[in-house]
Design a protein around this nucleic acid. Structure first.
Lengths: 247, 247
DNA sequence: CGTTTACTTGATAGGTATCAAAACGCGTGG
DNA sequence: CCACGCGTTTTGATACCTATCAAGTAAACG
């Protein structure tokens, strides 16, 4: 068990010969990601290509109705899941950030249920359908891990529905800011365009703009540039509490 | 392979000795339900109790936050999943009908994500957590089936969000009626109380009442009694189309 | 049959959509 | 570097939809 060509982090674990296994083992989000459940030896047995994909803001990761061939784990950035309702309006269902898995319906041979579009610069791992088919056969833990991912998606959907779809515009906007702060990787939070906000909160662009302007005046957030915001959590939480109190 | 004590439907298949297996094999919704994936022999190996539970309208099946010990498959009736948002309002997330599986988060050792309450008279099968734990170990197909169920719940959640949470009250009410007709077992559709409608569509009781009254006048539905409705699909679909056209 | 609860209807206020126009940010090419 | 043009955001005025408050009516229940 020579540790010569093993990266320091893995010293003491078996050497990995499969180059892809190396990449996955080194991945910063492995413990949160789909294969976190696999031990390193199992990782080494992956023969299928796990590709890393980079997307610019606005680029499509996959589109609704398309036959799904892969799921994707977000390594960095924010992806939005959106679909058109029957009146032809674009509705954003939820967001995917670091560690989230998107398009799992592909694993079941189904077509994608929504469009997935990059909101920021995004890096995802592509997990081909066949890979999971293979691995679930003898890795029971992987099956459980996938179920946990489905449940997480469901929890996200439920929370989106209860908190972002009801109440006055101001309150929904506050909740959105709270949610966005979950996806921050640094100090600055990604601030969606007004069009995106309106599609998330079911309001017009104008109302989104007005509401946000008001919150800026109240000191809930500052926007150094168009696409980033500094959110003052204490002020935000205070505003939410006052909201709830008088409602 | 004597067929003497085997019910006609199963002639030609191995005899089932486990009494519970008999009940499941005879279940009308088996092909849609969680164990549809299991062959009859596997069914026979179930040692755990699968209880049938009957609920009256308004009765609680399980409640949010409670440590989940079982999932439930709906055999008949309609169950609502609801939770309180942070402003203390009750929000109905979605409905569960014949063949739907609820509370699957219990299978993962998580607590329930929402309250489950019977809307009509309801019959469900209780699937203890341990049962699925046991079976997924050697029944790969069961694991896949459960994943399909999670995906189905997610699809439901997404549809609810895109179609029932956006647009004017009248349109949301029309979509609700369309959805309710999916849960009908006969001619008559279960008609929720105005309070329930308001919690599903994020509107007040008064608006729900007014909107529905208007649709009755337009001949979209008739209500023979308080809790049932006859929906005229052609009129309904027409109304939805006209909606979309002028929007 | 009275009492309670759910539903309906009306009048009004308030929030949001709509329509319109101005200000701003940003990339491009002069 | 600045001017230009385009898309986005902001702001204003008005109309419309829905919430709210308030009665009144119908249905459920003891």
């Amino acid at each position: 068990m020579s540790a010569a060509n093993v990266i320091p982090l893995l010293a003491g674990t078996p050497a990995l010969f499969n180059p892809q296994a190396r990449v996955c083992a080194e991945c910063g989000i492995r413990k949160h990601a789909l294969f976190g459940a696999l031990d390193l030896t199992a990782l080494d047995q992956i023969h299928v290509q796990i590709a890393t994909i980079r997307l610019a803001p606005g680029q499509l990761l996959y589109s609704a109705q398309a036959p799904g061939q892969a799921a994707y784990t977000v390594r960095s950035g924010v992806v939005r899941l959106e679909r058109l309702n029957e009146r032809g309006e674009r509705r954003i269902l939820r967001l995917g950030g670091r560690g989230d898995t998107l398009g799992m319906e592909a694993m079941l041979g189904q077509s994608y249920a929504a469009d997935a579009v990059a909101c920021t610069e995004v890096e995802v791992c592509r997990l081909p359908r066949s890979l999971v088919d293979e691995l679930t056969r003898d890795q029971v833990e992987l099956a459980r891990d996938m179920m946990r991912r489905w449940q997480r998606a469901l929890d996200d959907a439920d929370e989106w529905l209860t908190e972002l779809c009801a109440g006055p515009a101001r309150h929904r906007m506050l909740r959105l800011l709270l949610k966005l702060s979950e996806y921050a990787d640094g100090q600055a939070v990604w601030l969606p365009s007004r069009l995106e906000m309106s599609a998330m909160l079911d309001m017009t662009i104008e109302t989104a703009s007005r509401t946000l302007a008001q919150l800026k005046r109240e000191g809930v957030l500052e926007a150094p540039d168009q696409k980033h915001a500094l959110i003052h959590m204490d002020v935000l939480l205070d505003a939410l509490r006052r909201d709830a109190a008088e409602a």
